[in-house]
Design a protein around this nucleic acid. Sequence first.
RNA 1: CGGAGUGUGGUGUAACGGUUAACAUUCUUGAUUUGGGAUCAAGUGACUCCGGGUUCGAAUCCCGGCACUCCGACCA
Length: 424
Amino acid sequence: MAIIDNHSMRQSALFTKTRREAPKDEVAKNAQLLIRAGFIHKDMTGVYSYLPLGLKVLKKIEQIIREEMNELGGQELFLASLQNKELWEKTNRWDDAAVDIWFKTELKNGAFLGLGMTHEEPITNLMREHIRSIKDLPVAAYQFQTKFRNELRAKSGIMRGREFLMKDLYSFSKNEQSHFEFYEKTKTAYTKIYQRVGLGESTFLTFASGGIFAPYSHEFQTITDAGEDVIYVSREKRIAINKEVYTPEVMKELGVIAEELEEVKSVEVGNIFTLGTRFSEPLELFYNDEKGERTPVFMGSYGIGLGRVMGTIVETMSDEKGIIWPAEVSPFNIHLISLDPKDEVIRSTCDELYNAFQQMGKSVLYDDRDLRPGEKFNDADLIGIPLQIIVGSKNLTNGMVEMKERAKNMATLVPKEKIFATIA
RNA sequence: CGGAGUGUGGUGUAACGGUUAACAUUCUUGAUUUGGGAUCAAGUGACUCCGGGUUCGAAUCCCGGCACUCCGACCA
């Protein structure tokens, strides 16, 4: 499951098509571009399927998160989606009056199940079998799992769906102090994740309401008009305050003044939360401390919605022509474009480059289709692979191939034999 | 869940209550062409979301349902 897909492929074999126009009922820019470029398919409101290109991006994001979670000491597992009603009754979260986003379903024998909207209950219950002693702590476990949420109003393309892939990590600590030591490390890990996926500049650690066990929780908010949240951000200090806790007291505590804060719309691309003993007590996750005393485990939860991250990248990194993927999450490293596959010299040059790039460890989407150049350029710009290598007779006659960064409008000519050194 | 709007080939649009539902694009075939979705020809593709009703006649008007979009509320 954790294998990085670094396959290259010929575009003539790619079954997805690009299209000129977005479906009329799709308003969100992220969904419009991702559908036009053939990354995703909309099944119904708030429910999207990932096509080969989209899945590659999703897997890249997943792998970045996985590496950072492993670095934190997190251990990956995979919890079930079907959930036990009795567990949730113990924490008072089964009743629709308490939690109204459940998808519930029924067994043939009449018993009720829930489709997992989050996994605090099952993982807490599970840990009872593995955490008995103080020597078993701390523990951090995480998963990538489909969450089901019966949102009253799904919207914003893949940024707020009824079914979506989420990374959720749960921490189990012996006490508050140990918890916060870990909690601080997750901040760093999250910051690294957003940098790696290309959202570092526009993403801010944001103070939000903390619940009963901590003064604050922390959200990672990316500035974009496509967001649903409002934050007050200090770009200089690289922190922000969620509107919901934007008070003079909080500002004072964080050492900021209203004048240096800017009100912006943003999207919550991740959050970290101190759960305390909210779940360990009702579900009876206790350990024996040094004195042999039965003590509730102190917990935290840490989430990142992968689709939301992907949608946010598209929202913030695109132009009128299409998507501009950051290098680390691009479906391929290189878009190799042959302007005339019927020309023997161009074809053999492209084949040669295609093989050589792969041997360098680069993944390549090789546009070997027999189409007019304009159509290929438009497709390439729409799909948004950051580096385009264009081979046409005009330049190849002089021994040159063209190298174009998707983000810039300028192309540079590079002698064919120097191209490898240039991109390495 | 409250409010508003929209449902017509794969996609985007058009059609006064009145022929065989039109145009563009996609797709197929052929010709021509090859540095920014070029051109030409032929062809495929629609019970106009579903169910009722009004009418001589409904894509069009009315009722109900469903779906989709937007605004709001909600968002462990």
